[in-house]
Simulated scan of single mutants.
Amino acid sequence: MVYIIENANILKDNQLQRRCLLIKDNRIASIRTDVSQYKWMKMNAEAYIMTPTFVLLNNHLPSKGTFQEIKKYMTDTFLIKGCTTILTCVNVSYEKEILEKLREMKTALMGSPVDFIIGVKIPIKLLTQSLIRICKRERIPAIFVEINKVEELEMIPWGWIREAMFPFNNPLIPVISSKDKKEAKDILNRWNMIMIKEKIPCLSGELEENEPLSAAVLNKIGLYPQKASLMHGAEVSYNLYLKAREIKNVDEVSLFHYHGDRLVVTIHKGKVIRSGREVLYRPGNGEYVKVKTTSYFTI
């Protein structure tokens, strides 16, 4: 099916850009400023602010419970907020657990209404060349590394780790488990010094759960521009917020936190997920997203 979304007010870099989107086979085939010469069916989005749907990190997905309990959690945490993709991770204590825990997580999320991507979370002592090779082979896009003391960072052969990561280069993401604020700051400072010196793909800080992940983060883990973007070739997944003067110059994160009452439409891969106050819960509509290339796009 081919159609046009015209007069779309796309929020980008805290400003609204008026564009027209040519949609073909649930992909954005073209983005233009004028489509008056085309005769396809048109949808006027002038009354709305358009954003990509959000990607959230969540490591507390319900694996047990009744259908109604799971439905309520997934609806309240993700769907009602315009999130159609989640990043979660499995906790790994031993290298040989990785494949089994990945299978368990995929099975648990078979009924998910949103797309999902799975990383692994490990104590730093488990960060070895062989573990990196398993993650690379399985196309695991994010490795969360739990660090308790700054001294732990000095015990890792970082040069070997960098070599093992190439060419997939799935980023390392710090998780600071120390409760002491000064020690946590020291750990993060030392982490960044080592990552820069050794040229290791990484994130410079921790990720907050249930917060929209930025394009820079999504790019590093290989989801951007496949997800959370309104670019040529991207899937047709977007949110529509009622336009208002007070939300003219805000960013997507502010819309997510403070203007959820104005979110009226959520589209996920061309299908309506939310219309007005009604959220359409489709169990099993979500898919496991397998990343092919990390840091694919230059931001």
Rank of each mutant, 00 (worst) to 15 (best):
L280G: 05
E46K: 02
T298F: 08
Y238R: 04
S214E: 13
K269M: 07
Q17I: 09
E208I: 05
G284C: 05
I122A: 11
I70L: 11
E198Y: 14
K71E: 15
I273V: 15
G222V: 00
K149V: 03
A244Y: 03
P225D: 07
M50F: 03
L16P: 14
M155Y: 06
E211Y: 09
V236H: 09
I156D: 12
K269V: 03
E246N: 08
S214Q: 14
L230Q: 08
G270F: 08
G286E: 10
I10E: 09
L102H: 00
N285F: 10
D186P: 07
D34S: 10
Y38N: 03
F256N: 06
N26T: 02
S93A: 10
L153F: 15
E46C: 04
E278R: 01
E198A: 04
P141C: 03
Y94K: 12
G82C: 07
M195H: 09
N189L: 11
L131T: 12
D115K: 05
L172Y: 04
A184S: 14
I299C: 08
F67C: 07
L79I: 05
T77N: 07
R162P: 12
K179L: 09
S36L: 10
E206D: 11
Y258Q: 15
I134P: 12
P212V: 03
I267F: 03
R27E: 11
V35G: 14
F116T: 04
L263M: 01
Y281Q: 07
I70E: 13
K136D: 11
G205W: 12
V90R: 08
N58A: 03
N59L: 05
N59D: 03
G111Q: 13
I143R: 01
M231D: 08
K179I: 00
Y241T: 00
G205F: 07
K106F: 02
E211C: 01
N170Y: 03
G205A: 11
K24T: 01
G65K: 04
T294W: 05
G270L: 02
T88G: 11
D251W: 03
I273E: 04
P201E: 14
S229E: 01
E163S: 12
Y296P: 02
G284Y: 12
N9V: 03
I221C: 04
N239V: 02
L242P: 04
V120S: 07
T128A: 14
E183H: 13
Y296G: 01
K199C: 06
R19T: 04
N192P: 09
K179A: 04
I267Q: 10
T75V: 08
L153Q: 13
P167L: 02
D180K: 04
C83Y: 00
T33R: 13
K182W: 14
I4N: 02
G65T: 00
A29V: 00
